[in-house]
């Protein structure tokens, strides 16, 4: 989202920010070179990916369970894959180029059917 550049007499005094957590509007997903792909079929819901994710990019459902990946913010560090304890791993990294134009479902099939 392009931020609106306010004039000097429009900004809040003291460079105060009144909108908590508004950095969600800044999408760091574009930084990614690789992306994690999740396989719910083998996932054991240990939530290690969640507790170790630097970018709060593990989506959580109302039961507190892993529900996917927030690709708007995931920077593709790969910690989730590295720390995933299930056998086989329920998360795999793929190049962004490989993911281009594919839905999450399509990509998942491609990665985990091997």
């Amino acid at each position: 989202m392009a931020e609106k550049l306010l004039k000097w007499d429009e900004v809040l005094i003291g460079a105060t920010i009144k909108d908590p957590g508004n950095s969600k509007n800044y999408e760091t997903g574009s930084w990614r070179v690789e992306r994690p792909v999740w396989n719910p079929d083998t996932c054991i819901q240990c939530m290690f990916c969640w507790v170790y994710c630097p970018d709060s990019s593990i989506l959580v459902d109302e039961n507190g369970k892993m529900a996917g990946i927030d690709y708007d913010h995931c920077k593709g560090c790969g910690i989730c894959v590295e720390q995933c304890p299930s056998k086989p791993k329920s998360l795999q990294m793929v190049l962004e180029a490989q993911a281009k134009g594919k839905t999450v479902e399509e990509l998942r099939k491609e990665v985990f059917s091997k």
């Binding site: 950095s23 240990c46 913010h73």
Partner: peptide, 19 residues
């Protein structure tokens, strides 16, 4: 962790730390 994951996070995404 499932319970903790339901809590509102104090720090959210969109920050500019290194991957």
């Amino acid at each position: 962790l499932n319970d903790l994951a339901k809590k509102k996070e104090g720090l959210v995404s969109g920050h500019r730390l290194c991957p």
